[in-house]
């Protein structure tokens, strides 16, 4: 019974941790959206900044992956 409660807590925690991935999704969308709005204003400068956009996406996405990892750890490793 005690183990079940611990496991329940772990699962609830995993579910909560997954909400962090939504934040990463918002962040990535924000990065790309702002890039697009800037690129449509000045298309000639857009080509040189795609790499910067991908770096931004990578940084924003990494945090979402961290929360996913926490969820996985709670599910399988705790």
């Amino acid at each position: 019974m005690e183990g079940d409660i611990v496991q329940m807590g772990a699962y609830i925690g995993a579910g909560l941790a997954c909400t962090g991935m939504g934040g990463a999704a918002v962040g990535v969308g924000h990065v790309v959206g702002n890039f697009l709005s800037g690129a449509l204003r000045n298309p000639s400068a857009a080509a040189g900044q795609t790499a910067t956009m991908f770096i931004g996406i990578a940084f924003a996405e990494a945090l979402g992956i961290f929360s996913f990892l926490v969820a996985l750890l709670l599910m399988f490793a705790v």
């Binding site: 990494a62 961290f66 990892l69």
Partner: peptide, 16 residues
């Protein structure tokens, strides 16, 4: 840390 976990996490997540 972020450099490694980003790649592993992305691949793991998709396949899982």
């Amino acid at each position: 840390v972020s450099h490694s976990i980003r790649l592993a996490g992305n691949m793991m997540a998709g396949h899982a």
